[in-house]
Amino acid sequence: MPRRSRYSRDPLGLRRALSGWLLPGLVAAMALLAALAVAGAQGAAGLADRWQRGAAAAVTVQLPDAARVEPALAALRAMEEVAEAEAIDAARLDALLRPWLGAAPAIPLPALIELRLRDPRADPVLVGDRLAAVVPGAVVEAHGLWVRRLAALARSLQALAWVVLALVAAVAAAVVAVATRAGLAARRDAIEVLHGLGARDADIAGRFARRLGLLAALGAAGGTAAAVPMLALLADLAAPWVGGEAARGLSALPWPALLAVPPFAFLVGWATAQATVRRWLRQLP
């Protein structure tokens, strides 16, 4: 004997007409893509931001030995395009290089000075030439160019992620529209009966919209949950560039954006179903 649906929750029998795992499954796959895109966008944004902030201070002066640090600092501070000049102390340098050179480096380390230019667009090569005249052996390294390129790359990745997100939303809406039409076809008689009894378009469209919004949100929750381990792994891999240990694993994930995926899917499902059903209902008098 078929199970009786309770009217108050489901007068159109939508639980049976709109059931199965096809719609949630498709939405889950798309939510997975959306989660990856969102995380990618946020990650790229973080990298671009970090690198760009870094770029302003990214002029480094390398000196062959520590004895020349003081004269070099004096010379640099005297130059008017230099806003700040700071020697990097040996301990910090040691810490920075340890991953590459090991705990007790056998080679003599150069001394480093970090420069901040008053105008980030000024050419650090000119500074370097003038410094080299005063302190022989000083080498200026400007990281600006490759940082700018990396930042541009990160920004394109970010834009691409938004395009992917828009596409995913559009495909999800199309899938929901198809499912809605199938539901309308399956429940045509029931809809006509309710319409004849004086149900408003909003009553009927609302029933469909809630059901399809719920299915989409369920699928999206599943897809997003499936994306979390992948994203944690990626965050681990990205950690060295984004800020060390703090950015590792689950804590590094863009949680607000990920948590927004299921409600967003609900909205897409709800709005698409509303529009589809209301348009379909207009064929009835």
Binding site: R4, P11, R16, E192, L194, G198, A199
Partner: peptide
């Protein structure tokens, strides 16, 4: 505000008799 008895009844097959009769009140 109109009640209609159709020749082919037009009951909702998956709702109980009670729920079918209650439809107009619930609407």
């Amino acid at each position: 505000r109109i009640g209609v008895v159709f020749q082919d009844f037009r009951l909702l097959p998956y709702l109980s008799v009670f729920d079918n009769v209650a439809l107009p009140l619930r609407l």
